[in-house]
Nucleic acid binder design. Sequence first.
DNA 1: ATTGACATTTGCCAAATGGCGAATTACAAT
DNA 2: ATTGTAATTCGCCATTTGGCAAATGTCAAT
Lengths: 137, 137
Amino acid sequence: MVTNNESNLGRILKQQRISVPLTLQELASIARVSSSHLGRIERGERFPSARVLRRIAKPLGFNEDELFMLAGFLSPQDGVADEPGKGYNQRQLDPSVAKILAEEPVEVQRAIIGILSILKSVARGIDKEKEEPQPLK
Amino acid sequence: MVTNNESNLGRILKQQRISVPLTLQELASIARVSSSHLGRIERGERFPSARVLRRIAKPLGFNEDELFMLAGFLSPQDGVADEPGKGYNQRQLDPSVAKILAEEPVEVQRAIIGILSILKSVARGIDKEKEEPQPLK
DNA sequence: ATTGACATTTGCCAAATGGCGAATTACAAT
DNA sequence: ATTGTAATTCGCCATTTGGCAAATGTCAAT
């Protein structure tokens, strides 16, 4: 990525690094990313991958999600929601159901969801006559 | 990276895509990622960038952070997965499964467990009636 | 079997990421 | 100023990502 139009990310990262304070080389050795690369990221000549972003997050005092949001990797409203009942489902998964299901392989779990969706569409009525005529007999 | 086969991510993505259901081309056009690339990701020949992961999240019914966790981009709340593909325990309740199921009333959740146990017992006793050819025509 | 319509995979390529070492720039303390 | 040393930037290159188009696979309907 060349001269990112709106790369405050680099400035933010540099500011944070300076204020910690760390040099590029120190951050590089802590985060295991080359200092030259970090330098290019700070001045907007390169864009950090998720892996690099993740590695420099803690040394700079960022949360990973926070930094991912700054980088535009995560949508603003889609942070990790630790708050209960925040636009999520008001219903919840029955604990015993969760426990039983958790003992099955993930493929089985997903297959179960597949069966559920079939049952729901059947219950809703035969809704796909226009496209895919079911060989009923 | 060549055929990083130990990565479940591809499997998970494919399972989810199939169960939605979507074809590679449909997902490609919805998510604006080429179908060939998506195919390679699913079979582990390529590793998705954050940008791609972000684009395919919603069409597949994942939260972005959920998917980032699966890809190893975000650490799970406890434990550290430094390499992508690790840190995914196969014997846990899949987050997307939990989410979908949590939207159903508890009676439905329990009914699903009932169906699961019936299916398992059928699968166990499948050889008791080996003489039952299904008339499939 | 043949056709046709999709779906998936493969070959090839452009662009981007990221490391290493050399060059350059601060910035001390003589 | 000049020397020394640490910090930053630059040049070059390997590796990876991701797209396009062609090849291949799949499957239902002739």
